[in-house]
Amino acid sequence: MLMDHYNYWIVVVLMMTGFYIVIAHGNLIKKIVGLSIFQTSVFIFYISMAKVEGGTAPILEEGIRQYSNPLPHVLILTAIVVGIATTALGLALAVRIKEAYGSIEEEEIQRQDNLDC
């Protein structure tokens, strides 16, 4: 029982670490790092569930009966692309924010905005 879900638990810990970085840190770049860790951990979760004990990589070959599940692999390939797209756009925004505000700390930006109003 314990071993059955051990993998998933670690993955949950990883996800939550990433999630924590996103919400608790004020630095914009670090938030994006956190976001990508959060997403990567979700990928690990999907890939974990695709594993079949004793299976091999899903490339058809003579003499092999047991393959791991290819569908989550496909989904995650797509999701990785989505992840890098988000990261790139987020970084581009961070760069522009640095130019506009001279800072990439959340609180500093908030402070400047309040002054503006």
């Binding site: 914009l28 938030k31 997403q39 924010i97």
Partner: peptide, 23 residues
Amino acid sequence: RRALWAAYQYLIMGTIGATFILI
């Protein structure tokens, strides 16, 4: 320039939302 900051916040919130949906 606040548009940038708004977009960034939206990006973070939106991506968290999307990742939750993905989970």
